[in-house]
Design a protein around this nucleic acid. Structure first.
Length: 260
DNA sequence: ATTGTGGCCTGCCCGC
DNA sequence: TGCGGGCAGGCCACAA
């Protein structure tokens, strides 16, 4: 699914349309427009302008227009960005690799047939105008130790739930949370506030390293734990049978032996 | 405020 | 072979 690494790939791809004049907007799916906006409003807000920056905060892609509104794109679990007909990510786990026109939920067109399209079979993503960026916490990729401490401090919620809370840390999804906690040797169910200082430091370091690795390897599904995230799966580190639980409302795989 | 739960979206996979 | 149920998870609304 698109977590931070996928959306970062989308962001880089979107940079190729910066500076082009927006000639049209196609928003055939009203459900996909969020925050009470409609197709006419998006059209009026964008046509005639140009994007001049492609930013990312967590899992949201932000396209700023020059002296105008910002377009926010969320991809949910199954959304792809398709720029000039080329998908930004080859393989998307839990989505479909097929290409059906009716899955194009939102499109921006530029001269000479160029385009930026959100293709999302399951319609879990959405399009925003001037999204409230303050609702997202600091980006996971540039998270400092102090920010991680602040995000976890004093909380009785499960560690994993806190990591995935986009208002506190933006960009960590289910697969990356499992991978990072597995690498860090921390039990996802532990109260977030129960980490010692050494454990918090370790988690900050491992989370950063995990994101770097997944960015380099091309996606959130390329983690080392991923191969074992299946019934009967064993820990790639020590061979113990993995445990499958629901934590923070999400399917969670962890190793009972080395994750404490 | 904090934490947990249920529902939404729909393609896909498994078992009958 | 077709069909139906369950599953996937990001996000939001809502409840306690």
């Amino acid at each position: 699914m698109p977590e931070l690494p996928e959306v970062e790939a989308y962001r880089r791809q979107a940079e190729s349309v910066l500076g082009l004049s927006i000639t049209g907007v196609d928003a055939p799916d009203a459900w996909y427009l969020k925050g009470g906006i409609d197709a006419a409003e998006v059209d009026a807000a964008l046509v005639g302008r140009r994007f001049d920056a492609a930013r990312r905060r967590g899992k949201m892609l932000l396209l700023d227009t020059r002296r105008g509104p910002t377009l926010g794109l969320r991809f949910g679990m199954t959304g792809r960005l398709v720029v000039d007909g080329v998908p930004g990510v080859d393989r998307l786990i839990y989505s479909s690799d097929r290409d059906r026109p009716e899955w194009n939920r939102f499109a921006v067109s530029f001269p000479v047939g160029r385009s930026l399209v959100v293709r999302d079979p399951r319609r879990l993503g959405g399009v925003y105008l001037d999204p409230d960026e303050a609702r997202l916490g600091p980006d996971a990729l540039s998270l400092t130790l102090a920010q991680l401490r602040h995000a976890l401090a004093g909380s009785e919620a499960p560690l994993k739930a806190r990591l995935m809370d986009q208002a506190r840390i933006a960009g960590v999804g289910n697969l990356i949370a499992d991978e990072a906690l597995w690498r860090a040797g921390l039990d996802p169910a532990r109260p977030a506030g129960s980490l010692t200082d050494a454990e918090t430091r370790r988690l900050a370091r491992v989370l950063r390293r995990t994101l770097d690795d997944l960015l380099a390897d091309g996606g959130s599904h390329t983690g080392d734990l991923m191969v074992a995230r299946t019934p009967g799966g064993r820990c790639p580190k020590d061979g113990a049978p993995l445990v499958r639980r629901t934590i923070g409302g999400r399917t969670t795989w962890s190793c009972p032996r080395h994750q404490r």
